[in-house]
């Protein structure tokens, strides 16, 4: 079975994002970029399937600028077999991304598509569900446990009420949550090896997908901030202040 994993190049998890002076976007120049952490977990899940003999090939795909080759190379160094970049400098919104990825799904015919549950930049949490809809295949989102059994997957989902278990047939789209696994560290020899692995670049514009309506961005602003309040020095003072505020 071939596993297709989508990864997105995003501002690194540890960077404190800043809004540009014009208030149109966040500053991305000169900022450390990484694989979206949830997508990295998806790559790890695919690699473990391959190591367990459940997957035959792991293909990683990204949509983004030429520089996203770096993130694809990282995934190759982790152990993915080959990579495809759907190259564009434009911001690609979730539905367009889902259509582009489906274009690749038709070509690759994977048995399973793995994605992070959401990207930590736009926090949309949409692409996996949209792909499953367009593909007319099952989906399991927010997955923290994954068991492959022949043509089926038993997935544990982290939902508001607790842990939900569903069973889906393959092919399917699975989006993964934080606690599914801990991605491996990349070793130096693997980075060297990854340089020789195949990485194909296709211009996004040449996919010929029908572009859906776009949400128009009218700008960015910092969130309303909470300012610190008072410090009290005893439990009695705490209780008194809470009563003052009418919450006790």
């Amino acid at each position: 079975m071939k596993v297709l994993v989508g990864i997105k190049r995003v501002i690194d998890y540890n960077v404190r994002v800043q809004i540009n002076r014009e208030g149109t976007d966040v500053i991305k120049e000169g900022v450390k970029m990484s694989i979206n952490p949830f997508d990295e977990i998806a790559v790890e899940a695919a690699l473990r399937m391959k190591e367990a003999g459940q997957a035959t090939e792991v293909v990683v795909v990204s949509i983004g600028p030429g520089a996203a080759q770096q993130q694809l190379r990282t995934a190759l160094a982790m152990g993915a077999d080959r990579a495809t970049l759907l190259e564009t400098d434009d911001e690609v919104q979730p539905l367009a991304a889902a259509r582009a990825l489906m274009n690749l799904v038709e070509k690759e015919q994977p048995g399973l598509v793995l994605l992070g549950k959401q990207a930590i930049d736009d926090d949309a949490n949409q692409v996996g569900q949209m792909m499953a809809a367009l593909w007319d295949k099952p989906q399991a989102t927010f997955v923290s446990g994954l068991e492959l059994d022949g043509g089926r997957i038993r997935a544990v989902r982290e939902v508001d009420a607790g842990l939900e278990t569903v069973e889906i047939t393959l092919p399917a789209v699975v989006t993964v949550d934080l606690r599914l696994n801990e991605p491996r560290f990349v070793k130096m020899p693997d980075i060297m090896k990854a340089k020789r692995k195949p990485l194909e670049t296709i211009a996004f514009s040449e996919l010929g997908i029908e572009m859906p309506p776009r949400l128009e961005s009218l700008g960015c602003e910092p969130p309303p901030s909470r300012s610190g309040g008072v410090k009290v020095d005893s439990v009695d003072a705490l209780v008194a202040t809470l009563k003052d505020k009418g919450v006790l």
Partner: peptide
Amino acid sequence: TFGKDVLPRAAALLGAPQIS
């Protein structure tokens, strides 16, 4: 988690972009 699971799937069927 229910709304987040269902709505993008419906949005894709409708061909509409979704605001999260």
